[in-house]
Write a protein that binds this DNA or RNA. Structure first.
Length: 457
DNA sequence: ATCGGCTCGCGCAA
DNA sequence: TGCGCGAAGCCGAT
């Protein structure tokens, strides 16, 4: 068991006798949650109650009702499951930098545990909390199979530089986590009632981006989809995943993003399945190497979502081409309306707006075209992130930032033949889509989906 | 259909 | 120090 390697101390503090508080962040689940396990271990050792607190912020990096609804429905399930384990769940609202220290004081907490998140806004919250509290505060990497700081101590250049570092640690960290046990010590405070429905209805967020009906939020729904994918989809994953005209992807990313599903659970099911070895390897590569590389990029590069964060060679070449003529130029509004001359691009944009999830291959094409049609790479990155974060269920994720930075800025990629606008950034064009896929079928499907209301709840 | 070139930085072997 | 190689690319030559 290597739980201690997943934990790093944000502040040693002075332990007190009170309950252990797990401040739940991006790992919104009860099963396979190393942060929750660590918190319970601490609480059992100290013979004190265990409490989970989630801090809901009134707005978060442009999140819309679609994403808030998905998250809150999942949290409602978490709260009920924790209750059965004798673990109290609190929902706080407002600024976590104020709320968490106040909450810790109010219930007389003895120690604080958080889950690891590389996004700067969340690291900022944790820094502020660390400065205010006096009790110990541990951070646990509950998302990555190989903890981010164990896999590598620096920003990796590409997948090939991190792959070995992950694989040589993989078996060790694949060991199953203990399950959460019924907690022996009960909190004496009065029960905290949460009006989930009122909460959802009272949110002051952009409600024009509606929840979607094709995917059900929550830990149980996530496990169900995982098992269906492993049974029916995994065998064809390698051959079908990159074809936008096929339904070859796992569709697990919304669950993984909100931590309703753990990489551990997914990897375990995939490894145990009898799918062909190649399919399993291809999937594990995506699930583990690529996702954990994205966390590495964001954790070790504070400019993970802006032009400055691109590699030197990429900025040099993009700078050289920044005054190149742009034969097609679209405003953010035209992009958002899917009103370009390119029907495949419009279909991808529509898929994202209607469904909350664009096909993975099209995400690359989509972002590269935004570079081609924008006044500058800076604007391209900004607008791609804006759209991604507004509509995708898995917006605001290290994967999303890294993917956009890969497509527009050559992150984790290599230089390719020089051409206008792109410079040496890898280029993609419509002819490639036509050559490789039945792109007409993809366009057709998105048109149909957008004209029906079946995807809107 | 398939192959090599495009071109930079990193890891690793030597 | 040199060599091999890299997320999905394109393009032209065969």
């Amino acid at each position: 068991m290597h739980l201690h390697e997943r934990v790093r101390s944000l502040t040693q503090g002075t332990p007190r006798p009170g309950p252990v508080v797990y401040w739940m962040g991006r790992d919104q689940r009860v099963r396979d949650n190393a942060a929750l396990v660590h918190a319970q271990v601490r609480a059992r050792e100290a013979r004190v109650p265990l409490v989970v607190a989630f801090n809901l912020v009134p707005s978060f990096l442009g999140a819309t009702l679609r994403q808030y609804d998905f998250m809150l429905t999942g949290l409602e399930e978490v709260a009920a499951d924790l209750e059965e384990k004798n673990i109290r769940f609190y929902l706080l609202r407002g600024d976590p930098a104020k709320n968490i220290p106040a909450f810790v004081r109010e219930i007389g907490a003895g120690a604080l545990v958080g889950d690891f998140e590389p996004l700067h806004i969340k690291q900022g919250w944790k820094r502020a909390v660390t400065r205010t509290i006096t009790i110990p505060f541990d951070e646990v990497d509950a998302r990555n199979i190989v903890p981010c700081w164990v896999a590598s101590e620096k920003r990796e250049f590409g997948a090939y530089t991190i792959r070995n570092k992950i694989h040589r640690n993989l078996d060790r960290f694949m060991e199953a986590l203990p399950s959460i046990k019924k907690h022996p010590h009960r909190l004496s405070h009065a029960r905290h009632r949460i009006g989930w429905q009122e909460l959802r209805e009272g949110l002051d967020v952009d409600a024009s981006v509606a929840p979607v009906a094709w995917i059900k939020p929550g830990e149980r729904a996530a496990l169900k989809r995982l098992r269906a994918f492993v049974r029916y989809g995994l065998a064809h994953y390698e051959s079908d995943r990159n074809d936008p005209a096929k339904d070859g992807q796992s569709n697990l990313s919304p669950y993984l993003h909100f931590g309703q599903l753990s990489s551990h659970a997914v990897a375990r099911e995939v490894i145990a399945s009898d799918a062909p070895k190649e399919a399993k390897e291809a999937f594990i590569e995506e699930l583990v190497v690529r996702r954990e590389l994205a966390d590495n990029f964001c954790f070790y590069n504070r400019h993970y979502d802006v032009y400055r964060g691109l590699p030197d060679w990429a900025r040099t070449t993009l700078d050289k081409h920044k005054r190149d003529a742009r034969p097609h130029r679209y405003s953010l509004q035209k992009l958002e309306e899917a009103a370009t001359h390119d029907d495949a691009w419009n279909a991808a944009q529509t898929e994202m707006v209607v469904r909350g999830k664009m096909h993975g291959y099209m995400r690359m094409y989509w972002a590269k075209k935004i570079l081609e049609w924008s006044p500058s790479p800076t604007a391209a990155i900004r607008n791609a992130i804006y759209l991604n974060d507004k509509y995708e269920l898995d917006g605001r994720d290290p994967n999303g930032y890294t993917g956009i930075m890969w497509a527009i800025g050559g992150v984790h990629d290599r230089p390719w033949g020089e051409r206008p606008i792109f410079g040496k950034i890898r280029y993609m064009n419509y002819a490639g889509l036509k050559r490789k896929f039945d792109i007409g079928a993809y366009v057709e499907r998105q048109l149909k989906a957008s004209s029906s209301q079946s995807n809107i709840r």
